[in-house]
Amino acid sequence: MNTQAVLSIYRFEMARFFRTLAQSFISPVISTSLYFVVFGAAIGSRIAEVEGVSYGAFIVPGLIMLSVMTQAISNASFGIYFPKFIGTIYELLSAPVNFLEIVLGYVGAAATKALFIGVVILATSALFVDLQIAHPLAMIAFMVLTCISFSLFGFIIGIWARNFEQLQLIPLLVVTPLVFLGGSFYSISMLPPLWQTVTLFNPVVYLVSGFRWSFFGLADVPVGLSLLAILGFTALCLGIIWWIFRTGWRIRG
């Protein structure tokens, strides 16, 4: 194991983050506050409670998931796309590192950043609503696993993308809609039966549901299934990345 390489990549990626720390900190605080003003005030005045939880509190897990997923994807995809774009990837390809070490460095850094954002949003939310966390350990586990799996996913997008448009494409066209339709801001049980069934094909539903369960003990799908879903997604992404480095797809000519 080339630990030095993992640490070098990790530190290098984190340095970028620390250079813009204020920005990294302020933007999630502001956007979270806006969500509470808009969703909390506008919708919350019509929906007082969802399954016994105040609407303001109910949306917190979804809100955190939304940011954590998009942050993880954008950090990880940019992290590996940029060296490809400016050509510094030659160094990575000619270094004595294997795919796991590269992934640990890049994905580890992206996941750390996403986790930081998640924690900031959680803290901001606590200023607006009364939050209790029923299963803190499960909450941490879901958050960390989401950071990791979506950073892995972002890493794949970064390698796949041939230009900046493609880099934005998947998050915009696939992830954001899935998250919004994934029960982040409502309970699946509020939907008509047909849509409830359709929704079950949306993988994000399982993540949000499990994460929300860790807060309120409420879930749209069994929590075991949520855990399985996120572990499955992580394994799938790892498998794809392993294949990418084995074949050199889009990185080694």
Partner: peptide, 9 residues
């Protein structure tokens, strides 16, 4: 320094 680390030193 980054390059050095990347090569495991």
């Amino acid at each position: 320094a980054f390059s050095r680390g990347l090569f495991g030193k």
